[in-house]
Each structure stands twice: as C-alpha cells, then as structure tokens.
C-alpha cells in the first residue's frame, strides 16, 4: 500500500471531527473520497498532508502510513520533505493557490527546486516538459505569464504541474474541477487519469459528484459526518450500493434515463460537528432508519469482495436509483 490511513481521528478542541476513518490507495490506483461538504473528506486530506495544525486541529488517534513510514512519527522537517515532494496536493481554487505576483513557470520551478536535486536550468527544462505534457499550448510563452493572465483551465493545469514538479508518488486532489467549466472539467479529469497510469501515481480524488467518481475511480470510500459509511470497488458501489447514503448520493446526479421526479435529494442537512446525532449519524436523514440506528453505531462490515458498508440493513442490497 502506498498510503494507508487506519482509524484516523481528528479533533478540534473537544469536538471530534473525524471519528475513525480508514482508507488506502495503491500505486496506479484512483480512490474516490466522496461526500457532501462537511463530511470530513477535505479534513482527511489535510490530516494526510500534515496541515491540520494550520486550522487548529490535531490527530487524536489512528495512524497514517505512507510508503511504509508512519507519518505521525515524523519531525516537522521530515514532514516537509514528504509534503509537496512525495505527497502533493491539488486544490479546488486555482486562483488562490497560485502566487499572483510570480510568473507561473517560476512557481513550477520552485516546486522542483525545493524537492529535487536540480539547478535552475534543469528545473526550467523540466517545467517546460511538464507543461507540454499537461497540454498547455505555447509552454514557452505561458511560462512567462502571471496567473491572472490565464484562463481557469490553464491555471488548474499550472497547479497540477506544481504538484507534479516534485515527482510525487501520491497526489491528493481536493475537488480539482469544481470551479471549472464542464468541458474543461472533463479535460482535467482525463489528464489526471492519464498521469496516474503513466507515472504509476496513487490518486485520492475528493469530490461530492458521484458522476465524476463513476468516470474516474477504481475504488470509492463514501464519507458521512467524519466516518466512512461504505467502501468498495467502483463497479460494486454503483451496481449494488449498500448504504442508504451512497444510494442517495448516486440519486442526486441526473441521468438521461430518469423520469420526472426520479431526481431526489437527501432531505435535511449535514449536522454540525458540535451536534452529531447518536447511533448511525445518518439516521435523521434516512428513510429506512429503524430503532437500532438511533442508539448503536453500525460497524463497517463486509458486504462482498472488498466491499463493506456501515449499515444495519446491509443485508438487503438496494437498487441503484
């Protein structure tokens, strides 16, 4: 396993934001981390990147192993080597993750200079090659531009180039296409998949869109309120989703064969960290909830090959809506 997160718990003060999250990614594999905003998917990414202290959180239990190393045991200095070098992050908003007063080419150079034993000339050559690979037209010219001179799609390509410049083994992409136009989103997603295959990367794709998951991921982990509620291979998740939340999320995406009224949302809202429901945290929004769901936390239990779901009703697989 390239990355394996075991029973990860994260706290902000006394509030528990992640209550035991486990997932793993192999090289050449795309893991989709799915859920609504507030489900804890970005927080999991922050924890892997070791960036929690920035927002006042801390890991209070569990472990994160990357390539055999326990990241929790690393010194801040050693962590910096991993972060951006071996594990790189692609963020949602390309405008705010680029420095507005530095030429984009130099920002990519910087990432390489920080993590690889290269000099400036070599860094620039690598940057240009990388930009070409990411299908950035006129790489030589774009190299000298500032972020505000680029379109949204080009900016996101630059951000990806920055992430790749340190030759990482693992890429964490946090809603990398949410801010982009649909046709551009499709191109960026395709690019990410190609890179995973070419460079044998592990990719954790964080998204709320089951459509994107279906198109890109090998395995899926569905998160709700700081817990994994279902995990499995993408085919199984879509063919026989076990958890009502997974079914609901799939039902939120319009399909061409839906009849009017088929698109149903999920009633209610994601509860806040301070007011987590007891038992199964999804029970207030779940149509199938039985009395047991109000008091007991359903464990993640096997529901097929590599397929597990945290629901007492897992025995009755539901139809994909």
């Amino acid at each position: 396993m390239l990355l394996s997160v075991e029973n990860l718990q994260v706290q902000f003060g006394r509030l528990q934001a992640l209550a035991g999250v486990s997932f793993s990614v192999n090289r050449g594999e795309v893991l989709g981390l799915v859920g609504e905003s507030g489900s804890g998917k970005s927080l999991s990414a922050m924890a892997v990147m070791g960036l929690l202290p920035l927002s006042g959180g801390r890991v209070s239990g569990g472990s994160i192993h990357f390539d055999g190393t326990d990241l929790g045991s690393l010194s801040p200095k050693a962590y910096r080597k991993i972060r951006g070098g071996k594990v790189a992050l692609v963020t949602q908003n390309p405008m705010t993750s680029l420095d507005p007063v530095v030429r984009v080419g130099q920002q990519i150079d910087q990432a390489a200079l920080l993590h690889l034993p290269v000099d400036r000339t070599e860094a620039k050559a690598r940057t240009l090659a990388l930009m070409d690979r990411l299908r950035i037209p006129n790489a030589e010219m774009v190299y000298t531009l500032y972020p505000h001179q680029l379109s949204g799609g080009l900016r996101q390509r630059i951000v990806i180039a920055m992430a790749l410049a340190g030759e990482p083994d693992l890429l964490i992409a946090d809603e990398p296409t949410t801010a982009l136009d649909v046709t551009v989103q499709a191109q960026i997603i395709q690019l990410l998949i190609e890179l995973v295959q070419e460079r044998d990367l592990g990719l954790v794709l964080i998204t709320h869109d089951m459509g994107v998951v279906a198109r890109t991921c090998d395995r899926v982990a569905v998160m709700y309120c700081g817990r994994i509620v279902e995990t499995g291979p993408v085919e199984a998740i879509f063919a026989s989703p076990r958890h009502p939340y997974t079914r609901a999320l799939i039902g939120c995406i319009p399909r061409h064969d839906m009849a009017p009224g088929d698109l149903v949302g999920i009633p209610g809202v994601v509860p806040s960290v301070a007011a987590m429901p007891s038992g199964c945290r999804f029970h207030p929004r779940c149509a199938q909830a039985v009395s047991r769901c109000f008091t007991e936390v359903p464990p993640l239990s096997a529901a097929g090959d590599n397929h597990a779901s945290a629901c007492f009703l897992t025995d009755q697989p539901g139809e994909a809506s």
Binding site: V182, Q187, I193, V234
Partner: peptide, 25 residues
C-alpha cells in the same frame, strides 16, 4: 455533443472513456 460527453453520469461502465473536446472558450 461535447457538453454531453463532458457531463458524467453515475455509471461506471463509462469509466475512463475518452473525452474528445479540447481547448477552452
């Protein structure tokens, strides 16, 4: 057509099918 190809349905049989549209507006 390009818009349709770019809007992803929750259907893994379409997985990793090629998107033909290039460039931006």
């Amino acid at each position: 057509r390009a818009l349709l190809e770019s809007s992803f349905e929750p259907d893994p049989t379409q997985r990793r099918s090629i998107v033909r549209i290039t460039g931006e507006i």
